[in-house]
Amino acid sequence: MKKWILALGAPLALSAQPVIAQGQDDEAQMLAAMAEMFKVEPLTAEQEARLPLAREVISTIMPAGAMSEMTGGMFDKMLKPMMEIGAEATQATLATGLGVGGIDRAMSDAEVREAALLIDPVRDERNARMAQMMPELMSNMMESMEPIMREAMIEVYAANFTTRELTDVNTFFKTESGASYARKSLALQQDPRLIAAVMQSLPVIMEAMKEMVLEMEARMADLPEERSWADLSASERERLQALTGLDAQTLEEGLAYAAKRREESKKSLEDF
């Protein structure tokens, strides 16, 4: 694999430069647009004066390493079991591995696993390494995010609590009970009871989403479907080719594939 990558690397590196540059430009534009969407008003002088008090509160709630510790608990209690379930071979995952839409024949679990190991003999080791790697990667990510999140929370508290309120909170945190609350507040969000409640809510959420999908379809039922190659006039086809730089066959096949994907998505929503 390494030799194959190196063999292709030189010509691809040259040809990919405009694409990479374009991708970087697109990413920069997207990030800039998102930053503009979530642009916040600067703190007032009064709010800025409360920053030291807010910092004291947040340093108690979120000491160094708190987010990483919280993530570790979340992984052990929720993500790890979900990964273990997801690692099990099923006919659906087997079909994906084979690059086919589905497998009509009903296969036993043993048959599915045997077939899965045929196309990926080291799947168990691969999944084990992923399970071992994920907590470390998530912890590293949280460590990188923590300073940013801490500063944001400091500003949020300074903007939303008065000097009196922040002082009272700090006074409470200096008590034995307050210190216990501050230390546990982030970790409590990963309590098995809350996670269980989220899981119990899934049927309600799924039903609500299904109703949303049906309502969206009803509200757009009078709109025409996206046009296919056959729906375009000769002049429109020529214009589309000129605009995209793609030939007629590519556009015809691409539009057909897009229509197929839309139908598959619609069917998935109906089955959902």
Rank of each mutant, 00 (worst) to 15 (best):
M1G: 10
I5T: 09
L6Q: 09
L12W: 10
A13K: 04
S15R: 04
A21P: 00
A21I: 00
Q22N: 11
G23A: 13
D25W: 00
D25P: 01
Q29L: 12
L31S: 08
A33W: 02
M34F: 05
M34L: 11
A35C: 04
F38Y: 09
K39M: 10
K39T: 10
K39W: 01
P42W: 00
A45E: 11
Q47C: 06
Q47A: 14
E48D: 14
A49N: 03
L53F: 06
L53H: 03
A54K: 01
V57C: 05
I58L: 10
S59T: 12
S59Y: 06
S59P: 01
T60W: 03
T60K: 10
A64Q: 07
G65I: 07
A66V: 12
M67T: 01
M67F: 13
G72D: 07
G73N: 10
M74S: 10
K77P: 04
K80W: 08
G86V: 01
A87S: 04
A87N: 00
A92H: 02
A95V: 05
A95Q: 02
T96H: 05
G97Y: 01
G97F: 02
V100Y: 02
G102N: 05
D104S: 13
R105N: 10
R105K: 14
A106I: 04
A110M: 12
E111T: 10
V112E: 05
V112K: 04
R113Q: 12
A115T: 13
A116K: 02
L117V: 07
L117Q: 12
D120M: 15
P121M: 12
R123P: 06
D124H: 08
E125N: 09
E125R: 14
E125Y: 04
R126G: 09
R129I: 14
M130Y: 07
S139R: 12
N140W: 09
M142H: 09
M142A: 15
P147I: 10
I148F: 13
I148R: 14
M149Q: 12
E151C: 13
E151Y: 07
A152W: 13
M153G: 09
V156Y: 13
A158L: 10
A159N: 07
F161I: 08
T162S: 15
T163I: 05
R164A: 15
E165R: 12
N170E: 04
T171M: 12
K174T: 14
T175V: 06
S177C: 07
G178F: 03
S180P: 00
Y181V: 15
S185W: 03
L188E: 12
Q190E: 06
Q190N: 14
D191K: 00
R193A: 14
L194C: 05
A196M: 11
V198F: 14
V198I: 09
V204F: 08
V204G: 08
M209F: 11
K210F: 10
E211V: 11
M212V: 06
V213A: 15
V213H: 13
L214D: 14
E215W: 02
E217Y: 02
D222K: 08
D222F: 09
E225S: 13
E226T: 11
R227C: 10
R227T: 09
A234G: 02
S235V: 11
E236K: 07
E238T: 07
A242E: 13
A242I: 07
L243N: 07
D247V: 03
D247L: 00
E252H: 01
E252A: 13
E252T: 01
G254K: 00
L255M: 15
A258I: 04
A259M: 04
A259P: 01
R262Q: 12
E270A: 15
E270S: 11
F272E: 13
